[in-house]
């Protein structure tokens, strides 16, 4: 009843995404395939979505994340050989880390993972967006894209172009945007801030002044 991920999926994705793809695929012991496809250009997202509609895919979930910038110390901890060669090549500055497609990985950019189900197999299409950037909405192709896109828009400073109903989903409109990028005290989030008296007592207890 269900068609699985076709074997020529990589070629078909590449044909749909002329900007370039970063593809990998793995089949587990129980015969279920997990494939990943990074897109160099978010503009290709629409044609990839069209292909996936043809294949009968179901949009299962969208995960947004903000990858942290790679730690600087880690590079220094490489083994001696690497260190030696690095010493020699010291004048050459290392290029800033980027995602596939050239979006900087500096802790402010976003990675949007679209998890599609094709008869039990999972294909994750990845688009990259800069801070305050945007990606095209998949709602014209997949109705279930609506809620996850609204959720990502309230969590991060990223927008989905062409979303028909870009209201907040869970978080109240009065709360600042991009809540997942900052620490918001729980009392503020739930609008239950305590009185100034309590704060004064806390400070007094710590020996400071209010």
């Amino acid at each position: 009843m269900t068609t699985r991920l076709p074997t020529d999926i990589e070629a078909r994705l590449l044909a749909a995404a002329p900007g370039g793809i970063e593809f990998s695929s793995e089949k587990n012991v129980q015969g279920v395939t997990y494939a990943w496809c990074g897109l160099a250009q978010t503009a290709d997202l629409a044609s990839v979505a069209k292909l996936l509609v043809e294949l009968g895919a179901r949009l299962s979930m969208i995960s947004g994340l903000q990858p942290p910038a790679p730690a600087v110390e880690e590079e220094e901890e490489e083994d001696d050989e690497a260190e030696d060669s690095e010493d020699k090549a010291e004048p050459v500055e290392k290029p800033a880390p980027t995602t596939f497609g050239g979006t900087a990985i500096d802790g402010t950019t976003y990675e949007i993972n679209y998890h599609f189900d094709i008869g039990g197999d999972t294909l994750t299409v990845i688009a990259y967006a800069p801070h305050e950037g945007s990606v095209p909405s998949l709602t014209p192709y997949f109705r279930p894209a609506s809620w996850p896109e609204r959720e990502i828009m309230e969590m991060y400073a990223v927008t989905f172009d062409g979303h028909p109903d870009p209201r907040r989903l869970f978080i109240d409109a009065s709360i600042d945007k991009a809540v997942l990028e900052r620490l918001i005290p729980y009392s503020t989030l739930v609008n239950a801030a305590s009185t100034k008296d309590l704060w004064d007592r806390v400070l007094a207890g710590k020996g400071g002044q209010s």
């Binding site: 299962s60 979930m61 995960s63 947004g64 942290p68 993972n113 189900d117």
Partner: peptide, 21 residues
């Protein structure tokens, strides 16, 4: 019905991203 988890780790004890639907 279908419950799906996405997990991204960076080798640390604390995961970089956990997302579920």
């Amino acid at each position: 019905g279908e419950l799906i988890y996405y997990l991204k780790t960076n080798g640390e004890e604390i995961p970089e991203r956990v997302k579920w639907r």
